[in-house]
C-alpha cells in the first residue's frame, strides 16, 4: 500500500535515516534517492525512501490548479465560488 504522507528526514546515518511521519518515527533506507538532506521530505515505500518531495513544486501545483479551474468559468471569482 502506498503511503500518501511524506516523511521528514531528521537524521542521516550512511544509507539509513530517521524520519518523522507527522509524529511517528521510523528508520528508513535512503540508498535509492540521490543526495537526501536533513529537513527534506521523502516518499517511503516498504522501508525505503523511493523519491524526494519537491515542496516548491507542491505550492506551484496548487496555484496551477486554481488557475486551471478559474479558466473554466469566465467572469466568476473562483476563490469565492
Amino acid at each position: 500500500m502506498c503511503l500518501a504522507i511524506p516523511a521528514k528526514i531528521l537524521e542521516i546515518n550512511g544509507d539509513h535515516a530517521k524520519v518523522d511521519y507527522g509524529g511517528n518515527f521510523r528508520e528508513v533506507n535512503i540508498s535509492l534517492v540521490e543526495d537526501p538532506k536533513v529537513g527534506e521530505y521523502v516518499i517511503v515505500h516498504a522501508g525505503y525512501a523511493i523519491q524526494m518531495l519537491d515542496a516548491e513544486e507542491a505550492e506551484e501545483t496548487l496555484e496551477l490548479f486554481r488557475q486551471l479551474l478559474s479558466q473554466d468559468l469566465s467572469g466568476e471569482d473562483v476563490l469565492d465560488a
Binding site: 535509492l32 540521490e34 523519491q51 515542496a55 513544486e57 506551484e60
Partner: peptide
C-alpha cells in the same frame, strides 16, 4: 502529470538502474 511534487518525467534513475 498531476503529481509533479513527487513524479519527475524521468522517474528515479537510480532505482531504474538497479
Amino acid at each position: 502529470n498531476e503529481y509533479r511534487r513527487v513524479v519527475r518525467p524521468e522517474g528515479n534513475p537510480k532505482a531504474l538502474g538497479l
